[in-house]
Simulated scan of single mutants.
Amino acid sequence: MADHVLVTGGAGYIGAHACKALKRAGFVPVAFDNLSTGWEGAVKFGPLARGDLMDRASIDAALAEWKPVAVMHFAALSLVGESMSDPGRYWRVNVGGALNLIEACVAAGVGQFVFSSTCATYGDQDGVVLNEDTPQRPINAYGASKLAIEQMLGNFGASHGLQSVIFRYFNVAGADPEGEVGERHEPETHLIPLMLDAIEGKRAALTLHGTDYATRDGTCLRDYVHVTDLADAHVRGLRWLQGGKGGRVFCLGTGTGYSVREVIDHARVVTNRAVPVVEGPRRAGDAAALVCGSARARDELGWTPERGLEAMIRDAWRWSQGGGF
């Protein structure tokens, strides 16, 4: 009988892709989700356990019913701008929800935990390739809440033996190449789907949030990683824990940064369409440049991202043309 893995946020963008990767690897992914931002139509690879991380009883019930060998934790509030204007909500939901989940895992004897963290824990450190040894100095409540959860996992590892793999990753993009799941948020805040919406006329134009950054063309520079590659890394992280190798932190990215204007240029090539653009002010909490060093993931997990930026745009474009869920 296949082992179950509880995937919090399994009805969301990255969680659903992780569920597909888990199923392909021989696990039964159980999507634990309150569907506040996720989509029931994205739960295609295993059962859905309706629940909320702020409701400890619902977590306990899911762990008792499905008896997972591990948890993958994706569920979180993740809007940088909102975290700047309403930090209390991010501390309450992200940190409080994670604490409920971690304590429930300890109580249920679930000893393996894969955590979706973020490069936002590093803050604004321009001109530096960010890796696992880079000091963490978050500049917004979103990044600070994720860092707090990383520290919490360290505490529970020391006191209760909870083993965790922590992934700090960069801008996730693209869609499942087979078209079963893709990216959909309401409201949408991610560059590539916003850009494709503008191309299709679903919005008037793509807004450039700041054009005066100290980058090669004045727009923010980011490292983009394909969601399917990212999901593969999470399965590798679970295998790492199952192999008894202990807790570890890994950064996930391609090592190549693209500016917003460069992403737009690639989209024109992929779609053969113009991208309507307007210039706007900077957003609070945005770093100028975030680029990842993934040598540890390559050397220790055997993980190498296989899909570049144009593949990310092409898969996302195909998904958007197909109508979504």
Score class of each variant (00 low, 15 high):
Y213K: 06
A144Q: 13
H266M: 08
G255T: 09
P276L: 11
F250Q: 00
V110Y: 01
P193W: 01
G302L: 11
W319K: 04
A18S: 08
P187G: 10
V275E: 08
G244D: 13
L241Y: 13
A287P: 13
G244Y: 13
Q321D: 10
D217F: 11
A158I: 08
F32Q: 07
D197P: 00
S159E: 15
G96S: 01
G324I: 05
N272H: 15
Y224R: 00
S116H: 09
L162W: 02
I59T: 07
G253T: 05
G109N: 14
R24Q: 15
F27R: 06
V7R: 02
R318M: 11
C105P: 06
D197R: 02
I102V: 15
D3T: 08
W319Q: 10
G46P: 04
G12Y: 06
Y142N: 05
Y142T: 03
A297Q: 01
N131V: 02
E180M: 12
V263C: 02
F27Q: 03
H185P: 00
A297I: 05
G41W: 11
A108Y: 13
T134H: 05
Q136W: 02
V263Y: 02
L48C: 04
H17K: 00
T304K: 01
G51A: 09
R50Q: 14
A204Y: 13
V227K: 03
L196W: 04
R92G: 05
T211K: 03
A61I: 01
A31N: 04
R273T: 11
Q112N: 14
F250G: 01
H234C: 12
R248W: 10
L48R: 04
S320W: 07
G247P: 15
E180H: 14
G12R: 00
K20W: 05
T215C: 12
S294H: 07
C19G: 15
T271F: 09
I166W: 03
F113V: 10
V71E: 03
H185G: 00
F27D: 02
I192T: 02
N100A: 09
I192D: 01
A297Y: 00
E180S: 14
Y13P: 06
A289H: 04
R222L: 08
G179W: 04
L35I: 14
R137M: 14
S78P: 01
D229M: 03
G182R: 01
G182L: 05
A158S: 13
Y122H: 14
P281A: 15
R314E: 15
L241I: 13
V225W: 00
G154S: 14
G293Y: 01
T211L: 03
L162F: 10
E310C: 06
P276V: 10
E40N: 00
L53C: 09
G51H: 03
L99C: 02
